[in-house]
């Protein structure tokens, strides 16, 4: 069976095909084509990590090819053969050292960016952020604009050059809220209001999706994000206010039923709807019941979770916040039967 020519031909054809497809697709690599400051920093970070890894990767791949070729077994091999050569402190130091250095560099960069790009951190801007509340329903996204008083399904319009503060929660299953061209995602979890700050620098229509599996029609949970000028945005809000029906309690109930949905627009929504969704599972007289961070034994994570807790619980009232804080500092109990749940 003459294998080699066939295999070579097949490999070559496939590589060519892939190369053509990949270059054809490069414009559609939306993660690498960001339109906002957060996505921009994340793209830089991706390139940086690729370069740092490549410093090790490329030489090692070449070295592998060289060694396998040079030391292959053949009759008149001139390569040296030392069957008992099994240790070299110098070499070991080199290859323990190189990864340690690379990882140290990458580690420092990662830590710096982790704090810089923390999603709950407000963006620096002279404009006040626009608040949009996103709720993952089965299986559609409901967006409410508390300042404008309007509401949409599977569609967001935002003014460009203005920071957007997304507050994200879920009615049922856990989801993740992701607009690749604006920046990274955040989980949407019931009982919590997660905060994600993003901003669009250019007008355009961007793709958004749910990124964490929520059940049957999960794939239908995509949405459009349209970034426009301030004027166009204001005009859009006006249009929604005057031309579309209100979202009633019944209308909301209908939305929570299982099923997919087209884009929908509402001129108003029941007051405090988002907060109500966040708090819907809290029992008789209890308060917020979720933990902001890893609920685990690792001390490090626990401490860190505490430090960041307030940022994660913006859906809660101040009173609840102070209770949670009080609890974190050891004063565990409040009056009879009322506990700041964790």
């Amino acid at each position: 069976m003459n294998l080699k020519p066939k295999i070579r031909l097949l490999t070559f054809a496939l590589i060519m095909l892939m190369a053509v497809l990949l270059t054809g697709c490069s414009e559609q690599m939306i993660v690498l084509d960001p339109k906002g400051p957060i996505g921009e920093s994340q793209k830089d970070l991706i390139y940086l990590s690729v370069i740092l890894c490549a410093i090790v990767l490329v030489p090692v791949l070449l070295l592998t090819a060289f060694i396998v070729w040079r030391y292959r077994d053949r009759k008149d091999s001139k390569a040296s053969y030392k069957p008992n050569w099994e240790h070299s402190t110098k070499l070991e130091i080199i290859w323990w050292g190189i990864p340690i250095i690379i990882i140290a560099i990458l580690g420092v960069i990662t830590v710096k960016y982790t704090y810089e790009l923390e999603p709950s951190k407000p963006l620096v801007s002279d404009k006040a952020p626009l608040v949009i509340e996103a709720t993952s329903l089965d299986w559609k996204w409901l967006f409410t604009y508390p300042e404008e008083g309007i509401s949409t399904v599977n569609y967001i319009q935002i003014p460009k050059d203005r920071p957007i503060q997304f507050k994200v929660t879920a009615d049922q299953a856990m989801n993740s809220f992701w607009i690749p061209q604006l920046g990274g995602q955040i989980y949407a979890m019931s009982g919590m209001a997660m905060t994600l700050h993003l901003q669009a620098d250019e007008p355009g229509l961007y793709y958004g999706s749910g990124a964490n599996f929520t059940g049957e029609l999960f794939a239908k949970m995509t949405f459009d994000v349209k970034a426009t000028s301030d004027e166009e945005y204001d005009a859009w809000v006006k249009e929604i206010k005057s031309n579309y029906p209100a979202l009633t309690e019944d209308g909301f109930k209908k939305l929570t039923e299982k099923g997919a949905s087209n884009q929908q627009f509402f001129s108003s929504f029941p007051e405090g709807l988002f907060d109500r969704v966040v708090k819907q599972y809290i029992g008789k007289g209890g308060t917020g019941h979720h933990h902001g961070g890893g609920s685990t034994e690792a001390e490090a994570s626990k401490d860190a979770a505490k430090a960041n807790e307030h940022e994660q619980h913006e859906g809660m009232s101040d009173k609840e916040m102070s209770e949670m804080e009080g609890m974190d500092h050891g004063a565990v109990k409040t009056a009879s039967g009322e506990h700041a749940g964790h």
């Binding site: 609920s295 685990t296 034994e297 039967g337 506990h339 964790h342």
Partner: peptide, 23 residues
């Protein structure tokens, strides 16, 4: 048991407004 203790510790205050252990 360590895992069970950990879950207990996480949920130690999650009485959801219902009866508490000291009662």
């Amino acid at each position: 048991f360590g895992t069970l203790f950990a879950t207990f510790a996480v949920l130690r205050l999650s009485t959801d407004g219902g009866p508490t252990p000291d009662e």
